[in-house]
Nucleic acid binder design. Structure first.
Lengths: 244, 244
DNA sequence: TTGAGATGATCTCAGTATGAGAATAACAAC
DNA sequence: GTTGTTATTCTCATACTGAGATCATCTCAA
C-alpha cells in the first residue's frame, strides 16, 4: 500500500476522541501589583466560577494563533503583547465533559485597558495575584506554573521590557521586577546591573519631562536593546526554600 | 439547566476532532557522545523514515503516563529515568492523516541497553546527535528544542546526575557536561565548582577500585545530593551568538 | 623495573560580579 | 526656603570565575 493509498483508507475515528483547548495566563502590572486576566464562566461546567480565558482550537489554526485569538477576544489588544507557550495539561478527568488537553500560554503586556467579556464569558477582570478567587478546572495549578515561569524568565531574558512602554526609566523597570518577584530591590545596585548587561537597554538621550510625583530629579529614558538573553543574568534575591 | 443536566445533554462530537500524541526525546551518553533514541517507522505516513518514539494517548491515561509508557516500550527501562514535559506542537498540517497535537517529552538516562523496536516500529537505535538522519514530521524541530532545553537544564539543575550511575566521580560528571554541551571544560575549575555548590553531590567516602584506563590516581566517589536547583548555577562557556 | 604520559586534586592570581550602604544632586510639595 | 523623595554615582568588602601551575598517583609499554 502506498502512502497516498494508506491516507485515503485512513479513518480518523479510529483514535480516541480528544478535544484541545488553549488557556492563556495574561499578566500585566496595575498599581505596582502583578495582575492576571480572569473570565467569569457563563456556562457549565463551573458556571459562575472564574477561570483563565481560553477555548477550543479551530480547524486550520495553529496553537499559537489560537492563544493569540483568545487573548485578543478578551483584551481587544493583540499589539505589543508578548506570548509564549507554557505547558500542557491532560489529566483524564480535568474536565467533566470529555477528554480535554489544554495547552497553556503565558502573555505579558503593558498597562492594558479594562478587559472585554468574550462570547461565552459572563465577565472579565484583572485580579491581583495575591487576591485570587477560587478558579475552575485545574487553573490554579496552571496559574502557579505560569507565575513561576514569569519570575524565572525575568532573570535571564529582557522580558521585563514587555511590561513597560516604548521608552521607560530604570525605576519603571525596577518596579516591574519588584511586582513580579514580589520583593523590593536595592535601587542603586539594580541601576548598575541594568546598565552593565550588554544589549538590555539603550539610552534615548532624553529624560522624563518632570521629576516624579513625589519629587526627585528627572530620570533618563531608555528603550529595549537587542539582547535576547541577559548575560550575566539578574538573579532573584535568595530563595533558600526552593533550592532543596 | 443544572450542571448535571448540562453534562448529560453534552455532545462531545460538537468539537473538532483532534488526536493527541506524545513524542519522547530520550537522551543518553554513549562513548562520551550525546545520543538520542530514534525508531524507524514501519507504516505510513513516513514509512521507513526515522522518527522520535511516541504514540497516541490512551483513554484514562495522563500525558506523563503516556510518555513513560512509550519510552518503556522502546527501551524496556522505566527505572532510573528522568522524564519531563517539553512543549506541544499543533500546526494544522504537521501530520497528513488528521489534526494531531503532539506533546513532547524529554527523558534522560544513564548508559542504556540496546533499544527494542516497539509494536509499530521497524527498528530502534541510538543516534549520535551530530549524525542524525532526516526525521519524519516536525521531529527535527522538536529535537532541536529538546537539546536546547537539556543544555539549559544542566546549568541550573542537578540533572547531569541522571546520566551517570548511583555513584560517580567528578570526572564522569564533567564528561556528561562536555557531551551535552559539546565543548571541553576546564577540569580544575569544574572540580572546584561542583564541590562548592551546596547539595549537588555528597561524598561516599570511597574511591574507585583502580585508576583510569590510561593512568592517574583513584578518584573519589560521590552520589547525588538533595539540591533541586544549583545555586550558583554552572554557566556554559560564552555563547555570544545566542545572546543577540 | 622503570620511565612516560594521563589523570585527580589542590592552589594561586587576576579579573569580574555582587550586596550593602554612603553620598550627591535634582526635583515636588508644602 | 525647607523638607522629603528620587535618580544616580561611588566605595568597599566579599564572592565567583577563567586560566594555568603544581604535585601525587596510577596505567601502560619499553
Amino acid at each position: 500500500m502506498s502512502e497516498s493509498e494508506y491516507l485515503e483508507a485512513y479513518d480518523p475515528r479510529a483514535f480516541p476522541a480528544v478535544a484541545v483547548t488553549v488557556d492563556v495566563v495574561a499578566l500585566t502590572i496595575i498599581g505596582g501589583v502583578l495582575h492576571v486576566l480572569l473570565v467569569e464562566r457563563g456556562e457549565p461546567p463551573y458556571a459562575g466560577r472564574w477561570a483563565l480565558p481560553g477555548g477550543f482550537i479551530r480547524p486550520g489554526e495553529d496553537l499559537d494563533q489560537a492563544a493569540a485569538r483568545e487573548l485578543a477576544e478578551e483584551t481587544g489588544m493583540a499589539d505589543r503583547v508578548h506570548i509564549e507557550q507554557l505547558a500542557s495539561y491532560g489529566a483524564p478527568d480535568r474536565d467533566p465533559r470529555m477528554r480535554i488537553v489544554s495547552v497553556s500560554y503565558l502573555a505579558f503586556a503593558p498597562d492594558l485597558p479594562d478587559p472585554q467579556a468574550g462570547s461565552d464569558a459572563a465577565d472579565a477582570a484583572w485580579y491581583g495575584v495575591d487576591r485570587l478567587p477560587k478558579l475552575a478546572f485545574d487553573h490554579e495549578q496552571i496559574l502557579g506554573h505560569a507565575l513561576e515561569r514569569a519570575r524565572s524568565k525575568l532573570e535571564y531574558t529582557p522580558l521585563a521590557t514587555a511590561f513597560v512602554g516604548e521608552t521607560f526609566t530604570i525605576s519603571e523597570l525596577r518596579r516591574v521586577y519588584e511586582a513580579v518577584w514580589g520583593a523590593p530591590l536595592h535601587a542603586p545596585n539594580f541601576h548598575r546591573k541594568i546598565l552593565s548587561v550588554p544589549g538590555f537597554v539603550e539610552s534615548t538621550g532624553e529624560t522624563t519631562e518632570s521629576g516624579g510625583s513625589r519629587g526627585g530629579p528627572r530620570a533618563r529614558l531608555y528603550r529595549a536593546g537587542d539582547a535576547r538573553l541577559l548575560h550575566p543574568a539578574l538573579l532573584r534575591p535568595e530563595r533558600e526554600e526552593e533550592i532543596r
